[in-house]
Simulated scan of single mutants.
Amino acid sequence: MNLLSLYLDHPISKSALEYSFDLTMNKGVENGYYGRNDTLHALLAPFGVLTLIADEKRTILSALSTLGISMEDEQKLITQDYPIQIDPNHPEAFSITNQVIILREDTVLSLNVIALAISQSVGLEHYEKRLDTLFSQSRRIVASIHHFSISRRSHLMQFAKRLALTRHDMVSNLLLLDKPNILWDNEEAENLYNRLAFILELYDRHEIALSKLSQIKEDVMLVMDIINHKKSEFLEWIIIVLIAVEIVMGIMEMVK
């Protein structure tokens, strides 16, 4: 079997997937949906990642084509694939390496768990790339700290807003801080997910991303403090000048 997980640049509705893939999407993984027909297993994660599983890779490519998605420009897409082998004689319920996932049987639950873990990895990669951009912008902001303007203060506030929203989306959407609900009542599914999370380094990557966010936040707070200090100094000088002008005018009145 072949698995392909893809970050969607544009949101796709559940009904659009049902129409395009000729299957019924059911509520399954957290706030996501899954569906299955004779040739395709699909999972739509709540953070904008679509995962498709099929025996043949061309089935997946054909399904993506019906959504207007072409893999010809794969370098611009955030994707991850993983081969899945079904071996009824496998001594364990599953085994996972960096190269392949082996299952004793392809149950809906096991495929949903695999699809969730891979989609989280793809979603995390999306945020990692966004953080790289924010980190570069943060460095430029710190490098130009000696410049002050009212418009620059406004741009900094917009940057801080983007940073806060990114952190909120990472924590609330990727579901990496809490165990998915589908794992609470099934130890085998939990072990499958935990093994995949370890192989994909989900928790380590998530911690690194949050650490970068904290560093950028500290940079923004530092620049904001300096800008506020400069603004206070500027206002103080205006007050001093006004007082000086008033004193001079008072002296001139007294001389008259």
Rank of each mutant, 00 (worst) to 15 (best):
E72D: 15
I145W: 08
L109V: 12
M221F: 11
D219R: 04
L3Y: 06
E105H: 13
K217D: 15
V122A: 12
P91L: 03
T166P: 00
D81E: 15
A115M: 01
L111W: 07
R195K: 12
L192V: 12
E30C: 03
H206D: 09
K212P: 06
S121H: 03
L50K: 02
I247C: 00
A244K: 04
D22N: 10
T97L: 07
S119F: 09
D9I: 02
M170A: 01
M252N: 02
L44I: 02
L202K: 01
L40A: 06
F21Q: 05
D9V: 02
Y33A: 07
D169K: 06
R130Y: 00
A209P: 03
I145Y: 04
E218A: 15
H90A: 14
N181R: 14
V113I: 13
E253G: 00
D106K: 12
K161G: 10
R139E: 15
L8I: 07
F234M: 12
F94M: 09
V29H: 02
A16G: 01
E105M: 07
N31M: 09
N26M: 10
T97S: 15
T79A: 10
F21G: 06
V142E: 09
L64N: 08
Q99F: 06
K76E: 08
E218L: 06
R205G: 02
R58V: 15
R130L: 13
D185T: 13
L103M: 09
D169P: 00
E207W: 00
K179N: 00
V29L: 06
L177T: 13
I86M: 02
L222N: 07
L4V: 14
G35V: 09
I145R: 07
E246N: 06
A117E: 09
V245C: 09
L52T: 04
L44S: 02
S119T: 08
M221R: 13
D106F: 07
F135K: 07
S121Y: 08
A160I: 09
R152A: 13
V113E: 08
M224T: 15
S20W: 03
L242A: 09
N181T: 12
E18L: 10
E72Y: 04
L131E: 03
H90K: 04
P91N: 04
I208W: 11
D73I: 06
N194E: 14
K161R: 13
L111K: 08
I78V: 15
I208A: 12
E128D: 12
N98H: 06
S136A: 14
